[in-house]
Write a protein that binds this DNA or RNA. Structure first.
Lengths: 110, 110
DNA sequence: TCCATATTCAACCATCTGGTTGACGATTGC
DNA sequence: GCAATCGTCAACCAGATGGTTGAATATGGA
């Protein structure tokens, strides 16, 4: 099913899950490696990963014995768009946005 | 206490609360008026408003017998900044933002 | 084949969440 | 003063959430 704002925001509401997303920002990871820094069981992490998958925030792919977790950044799009609806009051991170543009577009020419 | 990403995201995870925020985008409102379009008790709405207040997303101010609810758009900032950390993959989508505004705000009765 | 590794499943538990109802305190208007 | 309005509080409930443990299922390697 298509992830909803409900599932995306509630997935983001948990600090463990946000930490996982940040780890995956660096690189794809196996489930066991995702779990390593946390002081909770592998099963708990497995559940968190299921929540993130359900929200469309990550995808998982089994290669051999290992299941890899990969960030799916598009999933943040709908949530981000929703939040920007409030930007008319507080120009949402124009700074961050401009920094992004500069990084992304500034390096592109040629 | 200062609102955390936890409280902000979990406040946003409920559709009733997101709808309330969108209503407040138009104008400040009394609690009773906020509750009017919803098919649930005033007490339930009162709780939702408490959650939004706790997340720093709205402020409430009692004037006489009536308690007014006002949007506090700054509160979305931290959450928005967090999300933009993933923007290196998916830039803020201005088209989608404009579409959102048109859909949510532009559809005013002629 | 047999064992170790990787991950999930199932059952269970405590706590949180979102709703209800009814009583209550505060404020206003007659 | 008294009644009506505004909103919250308290108690309660069902279901979701986040964790545990132990067993089960794949897969890979010796």
């Amino acid at each position: 099913m298509a992830p909803t704002l409900d599932t995306v925001f509630s997935a983001l509401a948990d600090p463990t899950r946000r930490a996982i997303l940040q780890m995956l920002l660096e690189d794809d990871m196996a489930v066991t490696d995702v779990a390593e820094p946390f002081e909770m069981s592998l099963a708990a992490i497995s559940k968190h990963l299921a929540v993130l998958t359900n929200a469309g925030l990550i995808t998982q792919e089994k290669r051999g014995r290992v299941k890899w977790c990969m960030l799916e950044p598009d999933a943040l799009k709908s949530a981000s768009v929703w939040m920007q609806g409030f930007g008319q009051f507080e120009p949402v991170n124009l700074d961050a946005f401009e920094a992004f543009l500069e990084r992304e577009l500034g390096g592109e020419p040629s």
